[in-house]
Design a protein around this nucleic acid. Structure first.
Length: 566
RNA sequence: CGGGGCGUAGCGCAGCCCGGUUAGCGCACCUGGUUUGGGACCAGGGGGCCGCAGGUUCGAAUCCUGCCGCCCCGACCA
């Protein structure tokens, strides 16, 4: 492609509303333009990169037996009502104003299941792996970070249909490895975490994560053994509080000025690990007291899994008084005003010598023995894993990092097939719901994450198969010098004929403009053709990744190019 | 949805408090000339419903009210 007629509107300055590097560089390099909040147009250069990502996705999905579909974005709402997801999705789902009964699809489990129900009738019809690359619509409350969170985005979504749970395991395994291959091929550094399956339903799910300060997820990561988990479910080998030998009777003491655990610890010189903190939640109008170590934080996702509902909230001050007899800061497991359900964190099981609120404002109890003084029998992992907690697998301190989710795989099970009547007859002639999996990758996120990981102060650094072009020929003074233009055109044709993807900057621009644009766009190899070198029968190679340059004889060019891309 | 910030030429911004010539600067763009290996220089030029609507005033980019849009933090999030 010759740049003089190619639409690549580069920008010298950062757009005011772009905060993160990938967003700034995608706009500056002329890959995208913003049309509205969370809505982006892909310009020719961006579209080429998208296509390269999608090519990889298709190859790897086809390689595991995937069959490509194209499902509509416009969906009858009826189907979504059958699975209860109109309500579950809430405002995230776009509804149309001038056409009742139609919505814009935020994902496609329902539609896939609908077609499966139509035509999959025997165990012999499975397994199936169906996928598509298609635009999703989600009415995000707050789009942000450029294309990382948009209201409209391209997703590669895949769905497996199996006639047994073992079959699902196999299908899931295939996608698990395909996903690794995809991200490896794209040149993205990632890690895989166990995740909560959230509103998707299902049994097992894993997320493919890219560590980034721009990420919206938080993960606990072990650099030694490779353990990684979304903080929603991450655990650790933190030792339990345990027992002290001395076990005196409970004693009440006045703590008039200690409202928080920190104040308590400081004023009375206590071990924070032996301060049991009480958090009271109201679950569908019923109170529950959650007991944790003082410096630990309750993990609401874990709580949700234990309670089996997400209909809970921290109790109000009035409720606290009613349930416990005290305000927040003075609540504990002993001497509650009303008998309420208590669940405690695993670390407190069997512990003694604990300090906790006395359920009387301004007083705490010490020497509490969980076994002797409470009738708590429910112990769960309730705490949020923290930096430095010992890895649950190998015990070394965990890191806690922010991350961007670029892929997510789920064992759905029969949630959708049951709801939509997608059944098959098994070997015994018995009707069974199809066992499903679902697998998603955000296409724009791959591009943005790649750039997040591969850029410098000059611009993007393309180095793998995602590069929009492989070679960037810069004609320096080509519009004034016929020999320069002639040589550039010669290289352009020869390299293209040899199968390389070549961009030729033949614009009537000064050298500085071309150098800066080339570094910004970031094509891996620049071949700089200028008058001075040409007089010596030479051109300059510049490697975008290292910024190294070398002077090369004209007749060596093809050979060196070949070596570079080998 | 709560909190904060911002809307002035294609892009980045000043002007607004304290109302008053023809709304300004840099980049980009057009013409001519000089330049030509790291975002050139000189001269000339084009481009604005100052986000929208209403109000106050002799007079509004500037003050007041309402609305819309965009960004950030939070809530939410397959």
């Amino acid at each position: 492609m010759k740049q003089s007629r190619y639409f690549i509107p580069t920008l010298k300055e950062n757009p005011a509303d772009a905060q993160i590097p990938s967003h700034q560089l995608m706009v500056r390099s002329g890959m995208v333009r913003q049309l509205g909040s969370g809505i982006f147009s892909f310009l020719p250069l961006g579209q080429i990169v998208l296509k390269k990502v999608i090519d990889i996705l298709r190859e790897e999905q086809d390689a595991i037996g995937g069959q490509e579909f194209l499902l509509p974005a416009l969906n009858p709402i009826e189907i979504w009502e059958k699975t209860g997801r109109v309500e579950a999705m809430g405002d995230v789902m776009f509804h149309l104003k001038n056409r009742e009964g139609v919505v814009l699809a935020p994902t496609h489990e329902e539609i896939i299941t609908y077609h499966a129900a139509q035509h999959i009738s025997s165990y012999k019809d499975m397994p199936q792996m169906w996928y598509q690359v298609q635009t999703k619509f989600r009415n995000e409350a707050r789009p942000k970070s450029g294309v990382l969170r948009g209201r409209q985005f391209i997703m590669k979504d895949a769905y497996s249909l199996d006639n047994s749970w073992e079959g699902l395991d196999k299908s899931y395994e295939k996608q698990f490895h395909a996903y690794k291959k995809i991200f490896d091929r794209c040149g993205i550094k990632f890690f895989v975490v166990g995740a909560s399956s959230g509103a998707m339903g299902g049994r097992q799910s894993q997320e493919y994560m890219v560590e980034s300060d721009s990420g919206e997820d938080i993960c606990a990561v072990c650099d030694v053994c490779g353990y990684a988990a979304n903080i929603e479910i991450a655990s650790s080998k933190t030792p339990p509080v345990g027992r002290k030998d001395e076990n005196p009777e409970i004693e009440k003491f006045a703590t008039p000025t200690a409202k928080t655990i920190d104040e308590l610890v400081e004023q009375y010189n206590l071990n924070v690990n032996r301060c049991a903190k009480s958090v009271v939640y109201t679950v569908k109008d019923v109170p529950i007291l959650i007991l944790m170590r003082g410096n630990d934080e309750l993990n609401e996702t874990k709580l949700e899994a234990i309670l089996g509902t997400n209909e809970f909230r921290p109790s109000t001050e009035d409720e606290l008084l009613e349930f416990t007899g005290a305000n927040g800061g003075s609540i504990g497991p002993v001497g509650l005003k009303k008998k309420i359900r208590i669940i405690a964190d695993n670390l407190l099981q069997g512990a003694n010598a604990l300090v906790s609120g006395a359920n009387e404002n301004g007083y705490h109890l010490k020497n509490i023995d969980m076994d002797r003084d409470t009738d708590v029998t429910e112990f769960y992992d309730l705490r949020t894993t923290k930096v430095g907690d010992p890895c649950p697998v190998c015990g070394v301190p965990l890191r806690v990092v922010k991350a961007i989710e670029i892929g997510h795989i789920f064992k759905l099970g029969t949630k959708y097939s049951s709801a939509l009547g997608a059944n098959f007859l098994d070997k015994d002639g018995k009707q069974q719901p199809i066992i499903m999996g679902s697998y998603g990758i955000g296409v724009e996120r791959i591009v943005a994450c790649y750039i997040e990981q591969n850029h410098d102060e000059k611009g993007i650094i393309w180095k793998g198969p995602l590069a929009p072009y492989q070679i960037h020929i810069l004609g320096i003074g080509n519009t004034k010098s016929e020999p320069v233009d002639k040589l550039c055109n010669g290289f352009y044709k020869a390299l293209k004929d040899s199968g390389y993807e070549v961009l030729y900057d033949d614009r009537d621009e000064t050298a500085g403009v071309k150098f800066n644009d080339a570094d910004l766009i970031g094509i891996p190899l620049q071949i700089i053709v200028g008058k001075k070198n040409l007089e010596n029968g030479q051109v300059e190679f510049k490697y975008r990744q290292t910024l190294d340059r070398e002077i090369v004889g004209i007749d060596e060019v093809l050979e060196i190019v070949k070596i570079f891309f080998k």
